[in-house]
Amino acid sequence: MREPAKSFQDLIVWQKAHAFVLAIYSFTQSFPKHELYGLTSQLRRAAISIPANIAEGFRKQSANDKARFLNISEGSLEESRYYLILAKDLKYISSEQYQTAWNQSEEVGRLLNGYRSSVLKNKGGQNA
């Protein structure tokens, strides 16, 4: 059995979400300059919200509070996915970049869903 997480950084779901953000930052650097305050900003903001809400929810004491922040992360993940589709359709990213980011997003989504389910099942023990 794994040792309970001492901080949000110990959570695999946070680690994968953070890696997703780093990937988003990497490929949005090549977006057109006229998108700096448009798609670039929106995609980065949505992606950042995923691990940020995992971190914020980590110290919440009740299962419902934790689950609410994880659900916000899930919403931000879906928003990020839409922006990925848009970036691909606008040809701002290659098919390979899109597929890599999409695969990362699916992994984060599975982990988020599992973590939220565990929190609710275990009624929010601090390290659930």
Rank of each mutant, 00 (worst) to 15 (best):
R81Y: 08
Y98A: 01
S94C: 04
E107F: 00
E107D: 13
Q15C: 08
L84Q: 12
Y82R: 03
S118N: 14
E79L: 05
I50Y: 08
E96D: 13
A55S: 09
A55G: 06
V108M: 09
Y92H: 02
I48P: 02
A17M: 03
A63C: 09
G114Q: 12
Y98G: 05
S94M: 00
E79D: 10
I12A: 11
E35T: 00
A63S: 15
L11F: 09
L112Y: 07
N53E: 07
F69H: 11
T28L: 05
K123G: 03
R116A: 14
L120G: 13
Y98T: 03
Q15N: 04
S73P: 10
R68D: 12
A46S: 15
S62Q: 11
F31I: 00
W14I: 02
S62P: 12
L84E: 09
Y83H: 14
W14S: 06
S80R: 02
K123F: 04
T28C: 12
E106Q: 15
S94Y: 05
E96A: 09
L86E: 11
I50Q: 09
F27L: 07
E106K: 14
S105G: 06
K91H: 10
T40D: 02
K121W: 14
I24H: 03
N103E: 11
L43M: 15
A55W: 03
L11G: 09
D89E: 15
K66A: 07
E96R: 05
Y83V: 00
I48N: 12
D65C: 11
I50D: 06
L11D: 13
S94Q: 06
L86F: 07
I24M: 15
H18Y: 13
V119Q: 07
R44M: 08
Y83D: 08
K60S: 13
G114I: 09
F31S: 06
V119I: 14
F20I: 06
A17P: 03
L22N: 05
A52Y: 10
N64Q: 15
H34R: 14
Q42V: 00
R68C: 02
K88F: 10
A19T: 07
Q15V: 01
E78A: 10
V13G: 13
A17L: 03
A101F: 01
A63W: 09
L77Y: 12
S95R: 12
E74V: 04
I48L: 15
Q97K: 14
L77F: 12
K91E: 09
A101R: 04
A19Q: 15
R59F: 14
E96P: 01
E107T: 10
Y115N: 10
F27P: 00
K33H: 05
W14V: 04
N122C: 11
L84S: 10
L70I: 09
L111Q: 10
A101C: 13
S30Q: 04
G75Y: 01
A47W: 02
S30F: 00
E79H: 06
Q104P: 04
K123S: 13
V13E: 14
S117C: 11
E35M: 00
V119T: 08
G38K: 12
S41E: 14
F69D: 05
K123H: 13
L111V: 08
K88W: 06
A55I: 03
G38P: 07
E106V: 11
L112H: 12
E107K: 04
F27H: 01
A87F: 02
I24W: 02
F31P: 06
L112V: 06
S30P: 00
N103G: 04
F27I: 02
